[in-house]
Design a binder for these strands. Structure first.
Lengths: 139, 139
DNA sequence: CGGCATCCGACACGATACTG
DNA sequence: CAGTATCGTGTCGGATGCCG
């Protein structure tokens, strides 16, 4: 495993400290960051955003096919939430039958960039994690 | 919002295509990546890892206090899973009463780096998201 | 102190059926 | 085609209590 320098640790600690003013609401108050994070890091949301990053536009049923295993209900819920939060756009063409196209907004795309770094890391190391998991279970 | 160049889009598409071989398991087979991602991007896991990134070691009850709102049950579940997956280490000192210390492994720390990029983005733009959300609800 | 066991409620999710 | 409505269920998570 990559060794971590003390320098890195200090940098990281600084970054975290800066964030904690926001994410560490100790009183009973409502914490918006957690909400935003919850949707953005939801497993279905991630897959939806990734697919919309790959295909410029997708229609409902296509998306449902690609995001394998998602139910229609959950997909429509997530799409509505992601649209409300500004990540994706929804365009409806009043043809018969109707055509609805989903795509990433500029905002959504800028998020996708960050998301990709994370998912790439996870993809690269998932084998390691699976191995760790098995090693942990056995002995 | 930052405009997205065509060049960027192509790059992104390539990255995603590379990943999709793994995350897009269309058949009924078990998909490990989603599992790994599910734990790693869980809202509690994220907070736990962030706090362990800030404090080198933390004991159970301290952690419970910092990760505001988590129940003892869920915290111990997550800790065990995160330990099994190799992100955190658990050291028990057989004193009376026992002392147990949690910390990040090198692997966990390297994940923290990626995670930080994401949470920083979210922290920076959460206000935007909240505004979007309100704008969407109203009219 | 650090947890695990148990119980129980909420709600997130899936399946199905139906509509514009 | 793109959803919504309804219903049933199962899992997650919180509270409590006990033990090493």
């Amino acid at each position: 495993m990559e060794t971590v320098t003390e320098n890195q640790k200090v940098k990281v600690a600084k970054k975290i400290k800066k964030m904690f003013g926001h994410i560490d609401v100790r009183n009973a108050e409502y914490c918006p960051i957690r909400d935003v994070m919850a949707l953005a890091s939801d497993k279905w949301s991630i897959l939806i955003i990734l697919y919309l990053g790959y295909y410029p536009v997708l229609r409902f049923n296509k998306l449902k096919k690609y995001v394998y295993g998602i139910s229609g209900k959950v997909l429509s819920e997530r799409l509505k939430m992601l649209e409300a939060d500004g990540y994706i756009s929804r365009t409806m063409y009043p043809e018969v039958p109707v055509r609805v196209e989903y795509g990433l907004t500029g905002f959504g795309h800028s998020y996708l960039l960050k998301l990709l770094d994370l998912t790439e890391w996870i993809t690269a190391y998932s084998d390691t994690v699976i191995k760790n998991r098995k090693k942990f279970k056995k002995p």
